[in-house]
């Protein structure tokens, strides 16, 4: 990304109170990282229950009850969005031009669109499934995409410190 494009926004993030705290308190960064990991486990675990049920692995998980993991996933995502913004404020000039960070953000947007497609396109029909009943093929595609995209998000996130130049 071109420096002039992201510099004004990056300067804004860097000047925030949160950014200052993240840089000045030595325990802030590790603490936020830890919370980011905890959020990740709740988010990914919830997705595993729902997506694996839809794919057909664990078909006897009650589909309607599995949807109760959606609010867990949303709260976990909110936690990770907040802690993620804290990292960004700490050192925006490092994150914005980082190719792994850019891919990660792009993939999260795609995962979001995929989730909306799931919610508005498939959710209602899926809730009617009996225990052990096979989900429609399109729903399985969405579920498989969801798992694949989030695995990629984790990988790109972990790669951020290693692709700096």
């Amino acid at each position: 990304m071109d420096y002039d494009t992201y510099a004004p926004l990056a300067s804004w993030f860097e000047a925030t109170w949160l950014g200052g705290q993240m840089r000045e308190q030595f325990w802030m960064f590790p603490m936020m990282e830890t919370i980011h990991f905890i959020g990740l486990t709740f988010l990914f675990g919830s997705l595993l229950v729902i997506d694996m049920r839809v794919i057909g692995f664990g078909r006897f998980i009650n589909m309607k009850a599995a949807m109760k993991y959606i609010p867990v996933a949303i709260i976990a995502f909110a936690v990770n969005l907040s802690t993620g913004i804290a990292f960004l404020c700490a050192d925006p000039f490092r994150y914005f031009p980082n190719i792994a960070f850019q891919w990660k953000m792009g993939l999260i947007v795609i995962a979001g669109i995929n989730a909306l497609w799931f919610w508005f396109g498939e959710h209602k029909e899926l809730c009617q499934l009996a225990d052990g009943e096979d989900a429609p093929f399109r729903a399985k595609v969405i579920a498989a995409l969801s798992i694949a995209i989030w695995v990629a998000v984790i990988i790109f996130g972990r790669m951020i410190p290693y692709v700096e130049y």
Partner: peptide
């Protein structure tokens, strides 16, 4: 970085299942 990323993905799976 590749082995570390695998460790993060594995963690998401183990911890995800444990939590759920």
């Amino acid at each position: 970085p590749i082995v570390l990323s695998s460790h993060a993905v594995g963690m998401a799976i183990v911890m995800g299942v444990v939590v759920a």
